[in-house]
Design a protein around this nucleic acid. Structure first.
Length: 742
DNA sequence: GAGTTTGAAACT
DNA sequence: CAGTTTCAAACTC
């Protein structure tokens, strides 16, 4: 704890000093003279710690103070996955795990990942706010996040790292990064780690003026990033042949060599270094053994890490919408929860233009760190420029693609066939990509080729002012951005109040108007497995479609568009939904197809988890880890906030979950309530509606009473699952204190 | 790119 | 709450 305190103090000082760093960078021009002053030189020499603490505070306030969504749109992109990876990553040097992992060298990676789950949860509980807060906010090229995480973790080793880094500079960040997560088979984890690594090294590069590698290219190249800390890459340090590396990765290898050199020359706590180093190499070796033994895994790794271009593009395409959300929701986050400090930033365009690294004529990947996952402060502005393919690639890997598989692998019991998992995860991913017509690679590719290919959704509203659900951007909970072709658009940060009002109005009509339209649940897969023939859909549209002419075979159909089959909730005619007809039992059921291909518990768990973490909102795929089954209502933003909510801070909307299954009785007891409470009960109604597929016998009541589906008996869910669901529901009211009472 | 079709959203 | 209108995306040419 002493170390922690020291580290905290140091870090705090550094934070306080460096709090201005982002702003300084954004407004570099006017401050250029100041930057020349000795003070700024000193500040620049400090490890540039971002004002995470303030973010933390605002997040906390945000979560606690608002019964409803505090900002017009909140960000779905605070990646818990990433955060957890971060956290886990820095847990790696923990000696307690050294023993464990050394027991079985060949399975250390998996075991660690299994450990990581528990670590993640505990860490998220303990440090959720910080971890969430630390994710996106500030300039991408800065190191502070690393410092923050290290100091946040109570791990004494990490505290030491933190202190050391503060003193010695970012090289140690690179060290910690290099030594830690490299053990992970999962390239995505590695990639996340490599962010820090690259950041740190990049910083080092800047400060020491060590050239020899094109860092910007490095940052822009997903594969390089991924490989940077991948076991393969790490191994490449020992094996110059680099058989496993693609040509483009040589740069990273050299970078790693440099890094190791710098590490070697660094005055580092010998015990710690030797210990972690030993472990690191041990793990690398074990990973190499695994890789050598498993060609499939290698292939998967190659695909994930280095980039099967098509796959990456697919992932990118599948995540287009999501990226749009992330990109633009950030602005709302700023406008909302961090309104004050980020006001300039919310006007992202100009601020981004003033970004020292930003050059609109340059490809986006030339902005250092702009493609680093979770660094989205200026992405809104970026979105307004032509989206670089590689950036999309990057984001796809870092945010959408990676979390899925990493979580899959993370949660995989030790000993399961990794290649199988990789394949299953990939298969599912592909299925989802294909299924979500919104994200259809073909389509998006076509769009990309045709020039329309912006990574994000762009509306073309003309009359709605982008303040109605007609507007896809608005409906998706994101601001419109420059590439939108809308006229008279009010869906912009500067009109936040208007947007908020419009949103409030819409939500008053339909409290879950902005909730995911398609709910995917893990039960659906199990359901298919255990009661095949009952119902085909792996997911359901919240309300169902109403197609008359399209036969649910075109994207006019929201079910089809969401990649789900029609259900009894649908009032469509002549349904021929390729994902599952309203009338048919498992006519196609792509999940069923997937099931045919993939056998075994490992795959089952993978599918379950994967479906579990996929939520589709307005066609936007949200990949989230720890998407708790009891909170299917959680929109993307709340899913993001889950780590926060595990503590005492609940996402605002969880207020409406508090009533759980008793909401109907509550409504009966309180028939005439204030509007706000109506709102609540309406949310509960929709909650029930959404939960219906999972609960089975819950009567579906549409919030607007427009669409009421009949009460159906057992919709095919395994009784045991229903039971578990009920248990979860019963646990929901454990947060009644946040429910407004009048 | 313009025009048409479609179904959700909004309105009455 | 059913019917109608409005709207913008999806689609077609």
């Amino acid at each position: 704890m002493g170390d922690d305190d020291d580290g905290s103090i140091l870090e705090r000082e550094s934070k306080d000093v460096a709090m201005d760093t982002p702003q300084r960078k954004q407004t570099n021009t006017p401050l250029s003279k100041l930057e020349e002053s000795p003070v700024f030189n000193y500040l620049n020499n400090l490890s540039p710690i971002v004002g995470v603490r303030s973010v933390h505070i605002t997040q906390t306030i945000n979560s606690l103070n608002f019964a409803s969504l505090p900002s017009v749109f909140t960000s779905p992109h605070v990646s818990t996955v990433k955060d957890s990876k971060f956290l886990r990553r820095h847990q790696l040097p923990d000696p307690s795990k050294l023993e464990f992992s050394s027991e079985n060298v060949n399975k250390v990676g998996k075991q660690q990942e299994v450990l990581g789950i528990a670590e993640d949860s505990s860490e998220l509980r303990n440090f959720g706010p910080v971890s969430a807060a630390a994710e996106p906010p500030y300039l991408p090229n800065e190191l502070p996040r690393t410092v923050t995480y290290e100091s946040v973790n109570r791990d004494s080793d990490l505290a030491v790292y933190s202190v050391m880094e503060t003193k010695c500079g970012p090289e140690l960040t690179g060290l910690s990064s290099a030594l830690g997560p490299s053990v992970h088979i999962d390239s995505r984890i590695c990639q996340i780690g490599s962010e820090i690594n690259v950041e740190g090294v990049s910083h080092f590069d800047e400060e020491k003026e060590v050239s020899g590698c094109d860092w910007e290219n490095l940052l822009s190249d997903e594969g390089n990033l991924s490989i940077f800390e991948s076991p393969i890459d790490s191994e490449s340090l020992k094996d110059p042949s680099q058989k496993l590396l693609e040509p483009g990765m040589s740069c990273c290898t050299s970078v790693l060599h440099d890094l190791h050199k710098s590490i070697a020359t660094q005055a580092v706590n010998p015990c710690q270094l030797s210990e972690t180093d030993h472990l690191s190499f041990q793990r690398k070796e074990s990973n190499m053994n695994e890789i050598a033994e498993n060609g499939d895994l290698l292939v998967s790794l190659s695909n994930c890490v280095a980039g099967d271009t098509n796959e990456i593009v697919d992932a990118e395409l599948a995540s287009n919408m999501h990226r749009g959300l992330r990109r633009r929701c950030l602005v709302f986050e700023m406008a909302g929860s961090r309104r004050k400090p980020l006001t300039d930033i919310s006007n992202v365009g100009p601020s981004m233009l003033s970004h020292p690294h930003y050059n609109p004529k340059k490809p986006k990947h030339d902005i250092p760190g702009c493609n680093l996952s979770g660094i989205g402060l200026h992405l809104n502005a970026l979105a307004s420029t032509s989206v670089n393919h590689e950036v999309a690639k990057s984001e796809a890997l870092t945010t959408d693609r990676q979390p899925i598989s990493s979580s899959d692998i993370d949660m995989l019991p030790a000993g399961e066939d990794m290649s199988l998992v990789e394949d299953a995860g990939q298969a599912l991913e592909d299925v989802v990509n294909e299924a979500l017509d919104h994200n259809s690679p073909k389509k998006k590719r076509h769009k990309l080729e045709s020039g329309e290919g912006e990574a994000c959704k762009r509306c073309k509203c003309k009359k709605s002012k982008c303040l109605k659900l007609y507007c896809e951007c608005f409906a998706a909970g994101v601001y419109c951005i420059e590439p939108c072709a809308c006229h008279g658009c009010f869906n912009k940060p500067i009109h936040e109040d208007v947007v908020l009002a419009a949103r409030t109005q819409i939500e008053s009509r339909n409290p879950l108007a902005f909730a995911p339209k398609v709910i995917r649940s893990s039960e659906s897969v199990i359901e298919i497995r255990e009661e095949s023939g009952k119902t085909p859909a792996s997911a359901r549209h919240k309300r169902g479609c109403n197609c008359k002419k399209s036969g649910c075979t075109k994207k006019y159909c929201e079910c089809y568009q969401g990649g789900v089959g029609c259900s009894v909730n649908c009032r469509c005619e002549q349904c021929k939904n390729a994902f599952g007809s309203k009338h048919g039992y498992t006519p196609i059921g792509m999940v069923v197809e997937l099931e045919k291909d993939i056998e075994g518990e490992a795959c089952k768990s993978v599918i379950d988890r994967s479906l579990h973490i996929i939520t589709v909102q307005n066609g936007a795929e949200q990949n989230t880890k720890f998407a708790l089954p009891e909170t299917p209502l959680l929109s993307d933003r709340q899913l993001i906030e889950l780590p926060l909510s595990t503590n005492s801070m609940r996402p605002p909307r969880s207020t409406f979950q508090a009533a759980g299954s008793s909401s109907q009785e509550f409504k009966k007891r309180n028939p005439s309530h204030a509007k706000f409470e109506k709102n609540i009960t309406a949310r509960e109604d929709e909650m029930s509606e959404i939960l219906q597929p999972s609960i089975g016998n819950v009567k579906s009541v549409s919030p607007n009473s427009k669409r009421v589906s009949p009460t159906h008996g057992n919709t095919g869910f395994a009784p045991g699952l229903r039971g578990s669901r009920k248990l979860i529901l019963q646990s929901i009211p454990s947060f009644p204190s946040l429910t407004p009472k009048h």
